[in-house]
Write a protein that binds this DNA or RNA. Structure first.
Lengths: 343, 343
DNA sequence: TTGTAGGCGTTATCAC
DNA sequence: GTGATAACGCCTACAA
């Protein structure tokens, strides 16, 4: 009896000599429907191979149950953890997730923000691309009052909702720790300084230096894209510095571990010759040798909280209009790669 | 002039004293429309804050431009690489991507397969959950002739389209390599043997042993879920074996690197005391010490090819009904962790 | 408890 | 080149 024809509630209605509205109600478990009728409806629907059409419902209900997510990349440990968190929360709240990656390009971010708007997502979660400078592509969300939430890579603007960690404090803690280990010449290897995450970590680095009266030297801050290749290049650059620094603080674990490897291959001892620290508490920080000192960065948790917060906004939970920034805790995780004192 | 009211082509039509159909055509760059009219339409649309409704179009056109993707997990290096590949191809072909993670549970896979069906995805890409045994949840796709493609974690059944690597050959190559390095007692640490990827790798392992007349011992095959914890446990179990094996072949790089770390912490030398090999050519295989021998596994490429193949199916490219299995090349990558001979 | 009718926003077909 | 109209599949007042 099942065919490949697309079956609608009208077909079921016709077969059962009922009205389409009755079918609709029956399929929705509307209590007004006679249980026997309901059973008949379900049975017939199965038998005929009926499949529900979410689009028609969305069109009618002006709600899509879809949340858009735009991230810079998918193939990053931190971002996948965050997405996993978002996905878990969204799905348990009955939402689907529409994902796009900007590949760190503003141009793509604009394109996808538009596409998601046209797809009538009920809300949007964004981690900004490296080079996004203009935020006009989010204006429509504001105007149409579609809940919008930035996560991790956010914008300074007070008007936007965001979930972040305190990158300044983390950068400060890490740098202070290195100074506490006796380091005086600390290189900071970081990503695009247009982004809060990198800018704030650098600010923390500077603040710690200042507090300990270590002069800040611009040439000790290396801004790269933190890819595998750039990291290798940066590490070599550090090896070639006239006065070799005694510590390296990298804004990303993977990059830190890669640098560490280059140093070791060049015959340096870590942390004796140079202490190394990362950021994120990626798995890579635990498998490196020595294990990497880092900042524990709650990716999955951030995702979950972001999703929950967005859903609350969608549901119009009133008191949330006030809290527009959620700051999660991050912790300094001290491991062998930076422990000069205890050797 | 912009308000938060939802603007439709009717509103634009009314304002311009034109018919809605004219607006629709204008917005679609239909050549039958007078350029001046078109300009007026676009200007008014912008001015009024019009946003296109994809749902209405989908409903009307019976096509969603959406592809569903169900993967076991998001926070895995290999899977994110694959997703990145899928995403790139889909987006450049004008498709959006709807993602869900089964968290390795059949139950979730069933749920999401249904949800995606109701969302009327134009096609579905699946990497099976660890414990999926029944495939009935894909029947509807077949019946409604919705293109369906399995990737990496596939099913033996001839009727399904799939993109895979030759896991048997890869497992065979790796094991042969280890044997060639003089190893005679090789432990194989693997994932759920219900899944082709693990079963085939094991079959390759067995084949290589047989060819070299090394008896296969069941107790040397450890089946786990390959998580960080399980890997540590497995490594300890290996350390406690009465006769310590001289090689370990793990079905996954991350797990291999973790084992290696446990071995080193116990004072073993790698590869002298025990050779270690992984699978995937994850970044972790390159940052470990020593670097890990592995199988290069083209995640992003697999994703791209899967997406392209699916799109071809959607477009009804005829000759594709024949090729229903695409096998990608994988290569043995020999690094220090297994090189006993050249030391 | 079930039926009737209109609308969600778009597009395709057929007129003019 | 533009307009009128029906249809996509579902939902919800309102009526019976």
């Amino acid at each position: 009896m099942k065919t490949d024809k697309i079956i609608t509630i009208y077909d079921i209605a016709e077969k059962l000599k009922l009205a389409p509205s009755t079918i609709s109600r029956g399929l929705q478990d509307n209590p007004a429907i006679n249980p026997k009728t309901r059973k008949k409806i379900f049975d017939t629907a199965n038998e005929m191979g009926y499949r529900f059409n979410t689009f028609a419902r969305n069109l009618r209900n002006q709600k899509t149950n879809m949340i858009g997510v735009i991230v810079p990349r998918l193939n990053s440990y931190f971002i996948s953890a965050m997405l996993a968190g978002i996905e878990k929360e969204l799905n348990s709240a009955g939402y689907n997730m529409l994902i796009s990656q900007s590949l760190e390009l503003e141009e793509n971010e604009v394109k996808y923000a538009k596409a998601m708007m046209h797809n009538r997502v009920d809300g949007l979660i964004v981690a900004l691309a490296a080079n996004t400078s203009n935020l006009d592509h989010f204006d429509e969300y504001i105007r149409h009052q579609i809940p919008l939430l930035f996560v991790d890579r956010v914008i300074e603007n007070e008007d936007f909702n965001k979930v972040v960690i305190n990158n300044l404090k983390a950068g400060y803690d890490m740098t202070s720790h290195l100074i506490g280990q006796g380091c005086k010449s600390i290189v900071h290897l970081t990503g695009n300084l247009m982004r809060n995450v990198y800018q704030d970590r650098k600010a923390g680095y500077q603040k710690a230096l200042a507090e300990h009266e270590i002069p800040y030297e611009e040439k000790l801050v290396l801004e790269t894209d933190l890819t595998e290749e750039s990291s290798i290049k940066a590490a070599k650059q550090i090896l070639n510095m006239k006065i070799r620094p005694d510590a390296l603080f990298v804004a990303n674990d993977l990059s830190a571990v890669i640098c560490m490897k280059v140093f070791k291959d060049a015959g340096l001892q870590i942390p004796q010759d140079i202490a190394v620290a990362g950021f994120n508490n990626d798995i890579s920080s635990r498998i490196s040798e020595p294990m990497l000192t880092t900042i524990n960065y709650p990716g999955e948790e951030m995702g979950k909280i972001a999703a929950r917060h967005l859903i609350s906004q969608i549901n119009g939970d009133s008191d949330l209009t006030l809290t527009n920034t959620i700051i999660l805790k991050s912790q300094l995780v001290i491991r062998a790669s930076s422990l000069k004192n205890n050797i």
